[in-house]
Design a protein around this nucleic acid. Structure first.
Lengths: 146, 146
DNA sequence: CCTGCAAATGAAATTAATTTTCAATAAGTG
DNA sequence: CACTTATTGAAAATTAATTTCATTTGCAGG
């Protein structure tokens, strides 16, 4: 099930949120983007097309969407500036390039059994998990050779 | 192989770093601590016992130790303030309580095969990975019932 | 033990990301 | 169309971490 812009809009309305031009613009940019964006990058892109949208609004909208589970965060190893990204259809993991900080989605996740085992062993009620692989992408490895 | 304070000191010396009272104090606190500490928490503890050690020095020392691989970072889901923790003997993962932010180490890691598969598929040269489970610990679940 | 130099320290300033405050504005219900 | 309430944007405030720089200090070599 692919979550499209229309569905997001109606979900927002259901939850009592208003559909403002700013939110539309932000959603639009997120929907178009094929990758992952920092709040700042999103802000820049939004303002390239639509004028006068504040960075604060970007943060607030991202918070709202994250709260509804429509987008999720990535922790990039280095300086811990967290990235925000388009929500893919299903649970997945991330692969981050240590050279260019590009983020690639990894489909498939076989940690349910592992989670159950951990739960048994520790008494924790497991709510979620985060898996990130870090490495150098093909492009960055090429560059290193020259 | 358990890394003790003496070994760390000699490793530092080997690498041409000086052993200052500040570093000793910080190492001492890290060695005593049974859990994970934020830079700020470490700073407080250090200054409870020894006076006049600057937060900057704490950051610098943590950076140094992390560079040498003697400590590692945890990304706590919520507000992305990263935690620093005592380096356990071997590669492991973390289990974080969403109630009290307690961090528990999880021994064992069977993701080497997974990493190899990802490398083949994506062309990335995998350098490292990060796995964190989040949930509610036994204590916090108890509290929720009352 | 003394000397000198490179490394380390601490205070303050700086950078950067994010959040809060608050008055003005606008969405959408009735 | 009016009214209520959520939303917005600018600026200020917070928070985390890093940089700068003058001063201090560890420690290697005499």
């Amino acid at each position: 099930m692919e979550v499209n812009e229309k569905q997001i809009v109606s979900l927002l309305r259901q939850q009592g949120h208003k559909i403002t031009p700013q939110r539309r613009a932000i959603l639009d940019v997120i929907a178009r983007s094929d990758g992952h964006l920092t709040p700042a990058a999103l802000y820049q892109r939004v303002n390239r097309q639509y004028t006068g949208i504040g960075l604060v609004t970007v943060y607030r909208t991202l918070g709202l969407l994250a709260g509804l589970g429509l987008i999720c965060r990535v922790h990039t190893g280095g300086s811990c500036h967290n990235y925000l990204l388009r929500r893919p259809e299903e649970h997945h993991h991330h692969l981050i390039c240590s050279g260019c900080t590009k983020v690639v989605d990894l489909a498939g996740c076989n940690l349910a059994a592992e989670a159950a085992r951990i739960s048994d062993k520790t008494g924790f009620e497991i709510e979620s998990h985060l898996v990130e692989f870090t490495g150098r992408c093909g492009d960055c490895r090429q560059l290193a050779l020259t």
